[in-house]
Computed example of a mutant assay.
Amino acid sequence: MPVFIRLPLVIGLLAGNTLLHSLALFVLTLCKLVLPLPAWRRALSRGLVAIAESWIGVNNALFELFTRIHWQVDGLDGLRRDANYLVLANHQSWVDIPVLQKVLNRRIPFLRFFLKSQLIWVPLLGPAWWALDFPFMKRYSRETLAKHPELAGRDMAATRRACAKFRQLPVSVMNFVEGTRFTPAKHDAQDSPYRHLLRPRAGGVAFVLDAMGDGLQAILEVAIVYPGGPCSMLDLIGGRVREVRVSLRQCPIEPGLRGDYEGDEAYRQRFQSWVNDLWHEQDARIGRLLG
Rank of each mutant, 00 (worst) to 15 (best):
A218H: 10
D283E: 10
R68F: 04
N59P: 00
L20T: 15
R161K: 12
L289D: 11
A83M: 01
D283H: 03
V241R: 03
L151C: 03
H148A: 12
F134H: 11
T183A: 07
V222C: 09
E221G: 02
S232W: 09
P200F: 03
L125D: 01
S117E: 15
P184A: 10
P2G: 10
L169A: 11
K32F: 11
R160D: 13
L145H: 02
L20S: 09
G75R: 03
G228N: 06
V10N: 00
R160E: 15
D210H: 13
R161Q: 14
W279C: 01
R139S: 07
R270E: 14
V103C: 03
P98T: 09
Y140S: 08
K116T: 14
F176K: 01
F63V: 11
Y194P: 01
W94T: 12
L278A: 11
P98M: 04
E178K: 04
V222N: 02
F66S: 08
E64V: 06
P123F: 01
E178D: 08
Q72C: 07
L37T: 12
N276S: 13
V225I: 08
I286A: 05
P230C: 07
T29Q: 14
D235E: 10
F66V: 13
R240H: 10
S54T: 14
R268G: 03
N84V: 01
L100M: 14
L7N: 12
G228H: 03
H187C: 03
K165D: 11
K147C: 10
L248Q: 02
V173M: 12
R81G: 00
R6P: 07
C251S: 15
L104H: 01
E150S: 08
D277E: 15
K116S: 06
D133L: 00
E143V: 14
L278F: 06
I253V: 13
V27N: 03
V205D: 00
G153N: 06
E254C: 09
P193G: 12
L125V: 15
W279N: 05
F182C: 04
K186L: 14
V103H: 01
R167G: 10
L28M: 10
M156T: 13
K102H: 15
G47H: 08
S141M: 06
R46Q: 14
M1K: 08
L209N: 02
A206N: 02
D191P: 02
A218T: 08
Y194Q: 04
L248C: 05
Q217D: 15
G256I: 10
S247T: 11
R42Q: 13
D214W: 07
Y194E: 05
F110L: 11
D210K: 12
A15N: 08
R41G: 05
L88S: 04
R68G: 07
E53A: 02
F114P: 01
R107C: 00
